[in-house]
């Protein structure tokens, strides 16, 4: 047992510099978010502050239109997740259960789309949305996020679907179930955990996206959270850093908690599908 203890100590010692650097921005965020405005720019700079100013959060909420951006982000992320999943579930099912002509080509196509980043296509996308009249319309983000996430969701779902034994469905057919019945009563209930995990990752991806939101949303009432926060910082002579950090805390912490809870599924999913 002592060997495990020594090993643990050595490992923690090795990891600690990295952990300090990882946790540093979180410290900065909290400490800034709760300090009084007057203490932002003191010399010499210091971590200490005189009191917890929780009102920063409520002030920030009103002044930066946080609520509006929050609703926009929620709408875009939820809708994009729903669209991506509705389109991905049948595709992943087909990939997992059928042989069909062009399957290999489709697989390659998915890999390619997964690699295509929005930034390279951003000009073309902007012109496309322009011609569709969707600039300044949150639905443009819904469509693009869904499209860019689909390769990942199909892949993730497929690798989980593969782990659901095919003979369960066959047993249901033998029991007199139609394909649809076996899908609804046997397959889908078993696939729910996979779908939930995939949905949450898609949600987080959409929630965090910046470039497309910055490009497509030209008026401030349509901003999503990352753009809204960026707008508080960029090109301003005076930045209200305590508000910015308060907003970052609110936008980040729930997602970080959700992610921490789910990261082991991601590791498993990638081990099952994306990498192998």
């Amino acid at each position: 047992m002592t060997t495990k203890l020594t090993r643990s100590l050595i490992y923690w010692a090795l990891l600690s510099p990295l952990m300090v650097v990882i946790l540093f921005p979180f410290g900065v965020m909290f400490v800034t978010a709760v300090r009084p405005r007057e203490e932002l720019f003191v010399y010499p700079p210091t971590w200490g502050f005189s009191e917890f100013r929780w009102e920063n959060f409520s002030e920030m909420w009103v002044k930066t239109n946080f609520g509006g951006a929050l609703l926009n982000s929620l709408y875009v992320s939820v809708a994009a997740t729903v669209v991506a999943l509705v389109l991905s579930i049948p595709a992943a099912y087909a990939m997992s259960r059928y042989r069909f002509a062009g399957k290999g080509a489709y697989r390659t196509f998915l890999l390619m789309t997964q690699m295509m980043s929005p930034i390279v296509l951003v000009l073309g996308l902007f012109r496309l949305m322009m011609s569709l009249g969707l600039v300044n319309d949150l639905n443009s983000l819904v469509l693009t996020y869904a499209a860019f996430n689909m390769a990942f969701t199909i892949w993730m779902l497929q690798s989980y679907f593969n782990s659901i034994p095919r003979d369960l469905e066959e047993a249901a057919w033998m029991d007199g179930a139609s394909h649809l019945t076996s899908l609804v009563r046997i397959f889908l209930p078993l696939a729910v955990p996979a779908m939930v995990v995939t949905a949450i990752f898609t949600f987080i991806n959409s929630w965090n996206e910046f470039v497309l939101a910055l490009t497509m949303m030209r008026s401030s009432e349509d901003f999503t959270l990352p753009v809204q926060i960026y707008a508080q910082v960029a090109g301003r002579y005076q930045v209200e850093w305590h508000h910015v950090m308060a907003a970052t805390v609110l936008a980040t912490v729930p997602v970080a908690i959700m992610f921490s809870w789910l990261q082991r599924y991601l590791i498993r999913g990638m081990a099952l599908g994306a990498v192998k």
């Binding site: 003979d167 369960l168 066959e170 057919w173 033998m174 179930a177 139609s178 078993l190």
Partner: peptide, 27 residues
């Protein structure tokens, strides 16, 4: 398959994991 009125016992049993024994048998 569903209309052949045949019952089958699978190698890996293929029991529905989200159903109880009773539900499996009565499905």
């Amino acid at each position: 398959a569903k209309a052949r009125d045949i019952a089958m016992v699978f190698q890996n049993y293929a029991l529905y994991p989200h159903m109880s024994v009773y539900e499996n048998m009565s499905f």
